[in-house]
Nucleic acid binder design. Structure first.
Length: 222
DNA sequence: CGTTTTTGACCGGCGC
DNA sequence: GCGCCGGTCAAAAACG
């Protein structure tokens, strides 16, 4: 990979990120208390929250310019303890720059044009992109929060030292590779951790019957 | 009968 | 190199 890619990497790691376009429109159950989104497996940069003191119809938008200040505010407001990140997941899996090396090292022989090679190429190509990731935790009875997008479950895994499985979802929209995973916090099973990865290439496709439901929900724009 | 979920297999990265 | 672990695949089952 070239230095241009490295530049991109650095930008994606260290620039403020506007996660509002990724989160879109969220509908939380009326009994949710606090959510605390933060960039996952990256330096803690983009942080915002929904203080429970906000009126239910308040719209909160996370802007690029205000996140650092917000972080300070939130840190002082909620205390540092709640800003612990989920570094325990394997961030190092998503390294850059070694895709071509991997491919060329396997190029000696038959599998360069073989079907398996193509398949491998696909997987590698998918892995090379380090999509923006962020996660947050929510006090919620239900595991999967309604975020306006349609998801298809493609896997479930029991991760070590946890009793609750982690579920893997992919956006059902064609050509949209956004993924999310949902798990319950080991230390507090009442908390749901939702991790998003990637950016939607489309707008949320809410079913058109949400006129009733919104009266029971607290709706937010991120 | 098309779509989604389930679930064991498989794969690659990482630590030892 | 080997085993563990997290993430994904894909066939079968379940669902509506």
């Amino acid at each position: 990979m070239s230095t241009a890619s490295q530049t991109m990497l650095n930008q994606s790691l260290f620039e403020e990120q506007d996660v509002s376009s990724q989160l879109g429109f969220f509908s939380f159950p009326s009994n949710f208390s606090t959510t605390l989104p933060f960039v996952c497996n990256q330096p803690l940069k983009s942080v915002t929250t929904l203080p429970s003191s906000l009126a239910p119809d308040t719209q909160t938008t996370l802007s690029e310019s205000s996140t650092l200040k917000q972080k300070e505010d939130i840190t002082s407001h909620f205390g540092q303890s709640q800003l612990l990140s989920l570094q325990r997941s394997s961030a190092s899996l998503w390294g850059w720059g070694d895709v071509n090396d991997c491919m060329s090292s396997k190029r000696n022989g038959e599998n360069y044009l073989g079907v398996s090679a193509i398949k491998m190429k696909k997987m590698k190509a998918r892995r090379k992109v380090r999509e923006p990731r962020f996660c947050f935790k929510t006090l919620s009875e239900v595991d999967v929060l309604d975020d306006g997008y349609k998801w298809r479950k493609y896997g479930q895994k029991v991760v070590k030292n946890t009793q609750h499985p982690r579920s893997y979802y992919r956006c059902t929209q064609d050509n949209c590779r956004v993924k999310k995973r949902v798990e319950r916090l080991a230390e507090d099973p009442r908390m749901v951790i939702t991790t998003y990865e990637g950016r939607h290439i489309h707008s949320p496709s809410h079913d058109e019957d949400d006129s009733q439901a919104s009266s029971q929900m607290n709706n937010f724009f991120w």
